[in-house]
């Protein structure tokens, strides 16, 4: 037989290459399978999972409880920190077991949940004093609630007006999804009064802290568990957010932190929700800088 036309020859030449390519594909797929097997073999499957979603303020508590719970009971717990509002939405949509929230659920959220057949039940994890923080270089040591409210409403814009140096105040707030933001508004400014338009928005406690610690003239608010040496806590109405002041209610800007479940918790969920009542749970709360109820 003679192969005179080029296309036919090309095809035949091609055909014998193809088998080699096939063996190569085999090799590649073998490699992929091996990789997959090593990946999968390392992790043993655990039965049921608790899925926690919500507040970044409750985040450290939830993460610590999760690690402790997994170690003690062998139940896997995953924690997301996407904000209290998202936690509530996840619970309403049935995509989390426990919503961690730094504010109470709103009536509208509860109504939406009922409509979907979800019955949100709250249990208080810990108390949290909302710390007002400024840069350590700021000489201001104390503000009244009214002063803070004026700063956030935009009525006071210079530190000189509250006894500080002559610099513009950089106001830092949290995003609308945040439970901390809503608690702050409710406790300090009053419901329905807008925050000044020049306020900067940060999306987590951690980013508020890093913004305040790098901006000389900033003011922000943090969950008490997030405070460290990089920022200075100022007194509100002359009172610092100490354990005693938060517990007996003299510190004016404190709020409870919640675990919300669908219906009365039972089984593992109950075990988890009851952790803050156990001696170990209480120790973890204290060590993380939160306050036991």
């Amino acid at each position: 037989m003679k192969f005179q036309s080029y296309p036919v020859a090309a095809y035949l030449v091609y055909k014998c290459k193809k088998t080699r390519i096939k063996t190569m594909i085999k090799k590649i797929s073998l490699f992929v399978v091996l990789l997959a097997v090593t990946l999968f073999a390392t992790a043993g499957a655990v039965g049921n999972t608790l899925v926690l979603d919500g507040s970044t303020t409750v985040g450290p508590l939830a993460k610590t409880f999760a690690a402790y719970f997994t170690k003690k009971y062998g139940v896997r717990v995953t924690v997301s920190e996407s904000g209290s509002g998202n936690g509530a939405k996840s619970l309403i949509n049935g995509s989390c077991t426990i919503a961690t929230m730094s504010r109470a659920m709103k009536a509208a959220e509860i109504a939406a949940a009922r409509q979907k057949g979800v019955n949100p039940v709250a249990s208080i994890v810990a108390l949290d004093g909302l710390a007002m923080v400024v840069h350590p270089a700021n000489p201001v040591r104390s503000l009244t609630k009214a002063q803070i409210s004026s700063i956030y409403r935009g009525a006071i814009t210079n530190w000189r007006e509250v006894g500080g140096p002559n610099t513009r105040i950089v106001v830092i707030q949290r995003e609308s999804n945040s439970g901390t933001e809503e608690s702050f508004k409710e406790l300090v400014i009053g419901k329905g009064i807008p925050v000044t338009g020049s306020a900067e928005t940060q999306s987590s406690n951690g980013s508020v802290k890093s913004r305040v610690s790098t901006t000389l003239s900033a003011i922000g608010f943090l969950g008490h568990g997030f405070v460290d040496g990089s920022v200075k806590v100022i007194a509100v109405n002359g009172i610092f957010p100490t354990v005693a002041a938060v517990k007996n209610g003299t510190y004016p800007v404190s709020r409870p932190l919640y675990f919300y479940t669908n219906g009365q918790p039972s089984g593992v969920v109950k075990q988890f929700v009851d952790l803050p009542k156990s001696a170990e749970g209480k120790r973890m709360i204290t060590e993380l800088g939160f306050i036991n109820r």
């Binding site: 499957a45 655990v46 999760a66 997994t70 924690v79």
Partner: peptide
């Protein structure tokens, strides 16, 4: 899909 803390998971999960 992402969470900030969770253990390694198996194929079944």
């Amino acid at each position: 899909a992402a969470v900030s803390v969770g253990s390694a998971i198996g194929l079944a999960d």
